[in-house]
Design a protein around this nucleic acid. Structure first.
Lengths: 203, 203
DNA sequence: CGGATATTTGACCAACCGGTCAAGATAATC
DNA sequence: GATTATCTTGACCGGTTGGTCAAATATCCG
């Protein structure tokens, strides 16, 4: 067997980068090829269509994110720490984005989800699935926090949805305004939203 | 003087509808012309470019929204009622969208803001301005609520930003999942986020 | 080395993109 | 009813879109 190429990976990376920074519809196949230094013929050797490439790129991004989430939401950590620790991590990476490419980028799944959500595409379905899974991390952390009474959240699922909405809304505002300082409000907002007890608020 | 036309208004309405439902980049000039039953030549008689049309359409949408906000956030109403009343109104109109076109559409300013936010276009600037103004309604309501001690929010601006993020995040989730039921969580989340007192929570 | 398979290349496609324009149609005004 | 400014029309533009393809080339394996 002949020749192994990394052009497919370069395409995945370039696609994620461009779609994340701009948007799905604003990113053309030619743009992606140019950024990945791959000719269009090779593009269609590896991927059947632009939408399939986007799907694969988001899937790859999710795999990376999942391993970070698994670490930050480890059950060995106090439940509220998992959440605030994750928010700290998000603030850090968004600041890094801003340093590198000049923009706060927000969440790629959420951004593309907003863009294509109403169109019933395969992309939309995949994104809903990813967001659902991300929600689960919040849900179990909140359930644990409730069990050890650092938080009062009888319905952990609803509380997780509200926290997730607050989190994504804050991240999106940071993108729209290109201001990572807004992410500093994630921690206090989360504790407030979950009705965290006084003692739990410190650090 | 000759001939008065409403083609410009039809274009504004069609543009808002299509951009809101789909996205800015997914909506073409031809799409808009078709929906408005206007030939392309007429389009460019009234508007110099697609982006200027979008700008004007969002501006018109904001004017309509502003008059609703002025009414629902009237200082004659109890401060928390202004907020919950607005959320009720949003839930109602989003349900209506879903009934009419099958989709929860979310907030047009926020959606387009997410899409073009990083590109430094005039559209982005306009949207930031609109979102800022919408934020002010929350801010004064929260300040009033704090003054009459139905809420504890020493920094009304920060509290407003957090509430706004929660509101937009929830609306966007409802769009992504096409589920208006999520909007039912706006009220309880808002009261929780603002640390509303027990008595204030009842209806 | 020779063959099999994986990859690369660049030319090509029809459809569509945002935008232009000259010519004609229409209607309020005098 | 002529004038005049507003609006409408449809043909047209070069560039870009997502996507195709046959031929060339590179590599691994025996």
């Amino acid at each position: 067997m002949p020749r192994t190429s990394d052009a497919d990976e370069r395409l995945l990376n370039a696609a994620l980068e461009l779609i994340w920074k701009n948007s799905y519809h604003a990113t053309s196949v030619d743009d992606i090829c140019r950024a990945a230094e791959v000719r269009k013929g090779s593009f269609y050797h590896f991927f059947p269509s632009k939408s399939q490439l986007a799907l694969a790129a988001l899937e790859a991004a999710w795999r990376r994110r999942k391993s970070i989430l698994d670490e930050l939401f480890s059950p060995t950590l106090p439940p509220l720490r998992r959440i605030t620790g994750y928010f700290d991590h998000v603030a850090k990476t968004q600041r890094a984005h801003r340093g590198k490419c000049g923009c706060v980028l927000g969440c790629p799944f959420f951004n593309v989800g907003c863009e294509v959500g109403t169109q019933g595409s395969a992309l939309g379905t995949k994104i809903r699935k990813i967001l659902d899974r991300q929600l689960l991390y919040f849900e179990t952390a909140i359930r644990d926090a409730h069990a050890q009474r650092t938080v009062r959240a009888p319905d952990a699922r609803v509380a997780a949805r509200m926290l997730f909405a607050f989190y994504q809304g804050t991240l999106a505002q940071a993108r729209i305004r290109n201001d990572p300082r807004l992410l500093g409000e994630l921690r206090t907002g989360a504790l407030q939203l979950l009705g965290a007890r006084g003692e739990a608020r410190a650090r």
